[in-house]
Simulated scan of single mutants.
Amino acid sequence: MTEAGPVFREAALADVPAVVALVESAYRGASSRAGWTTEADLLDGRRTDEEGIASIVADPDAVLLLAEHPAGGPAGARLLGCCELRRTGETAYFGTFAVRPVLQGGGIGASLLARADAEAVRRWGSAALEMTVIAQRADLIAWYERRGFSATGHRRPFPYGDERFGVPKRDDLEFLVLRRATGGPPGAA
Rank of each mutant, 00 (worst) to 15 (best):
R28F: 06
L43E: 03
L176C: 04
T88R: 09
D162V: 08
A77V: 09
A4T: 13
L80P: 01
I141G: 08
V20I: 10
E84D: 05
E130Q: 15
R47Q: 14
T37N: 14
P101A: 11
T48K: 07
T38C: 00
T182W: 13
R123P: 14
A138S: 11
E50K: 06
E145D: 08
D15R: 14
G166M: 06
G148N: 04
A110E: 02
R147Y: 01
R180K: 08
D41N: 04
V99P: 04
V177L: 14
D49Y: 15
R78A: 15
A116F: 06
A26Q: 04
V102F: 06
G73C: 14
Y27W: 12
L140N: 06
A116D: 01
R123L: 10
S126D: 00
A54M: 10
L178C: 09
P185D: 12
P70W: 11
Y160K: 08
L129H: 06
E50P: 14
P74N: 11
L85Q: 09
M1R: 09
D41G: 13
G184P: 00
A26F: 03
S55D: 07
D61F: 04
R156G: 02
A77H: 12
S111G: 15
F94Q: 01
Q104S: 11
A138K: 09
A135Q: 15
L66H: 09
A67M: 01
V63M: 13
D162G: 07
P186E: 05
E39S: 03
L22A: 00
R28A: 05
F8D: 11
V177N: 15
R33I: 03
F149W: 06
E84G: 00
T91Q: 07
E130M: 10
E163P: 13
E24Q: 13
T48F: 01
L79T: 13
G72K: 10
V177C: 12
E10L: 15
R164A: 13
P185M: 00
R87M: 07
E51K: 13
L79M: 10
L66V: 06
G35V: 02
S111A: 13
D59H: 06
R9E: 03
E163S: 09
W143Y: 14
P159C: 13
V20F: 10
F165Q: 01
G72C: 08
A188I: 01
A11Q: 11
A67C: 05
R137F: 00
L129E: 05
R122P: 07
R156K: 15
A92N: 14
G81N: 03
P159E: 07
C82Y: 05
E119H: 03
D59P: 01
A98Q: 07
L173E: 00
G166H: 09
F158G: 10
F97C: 03
H69M: 03
S55E: 05
F8T: 05
F8L: 12
F97Q: 01
T37S: 12
D61A: 08
L103H: 10
L85N: 14
A71Y: 15
G184K: 08
T96F: 12
T182L: 08
P6T: 06
V99D: 03
A127M: 07
Y93S: 08
A138T: 04
A118W: 08
L79Y: 12
L13V: 02
T132K: 15
R146A: 05
V167F: 11
W124P: 08
P159T: 15
A30R: 07
A26T: 01
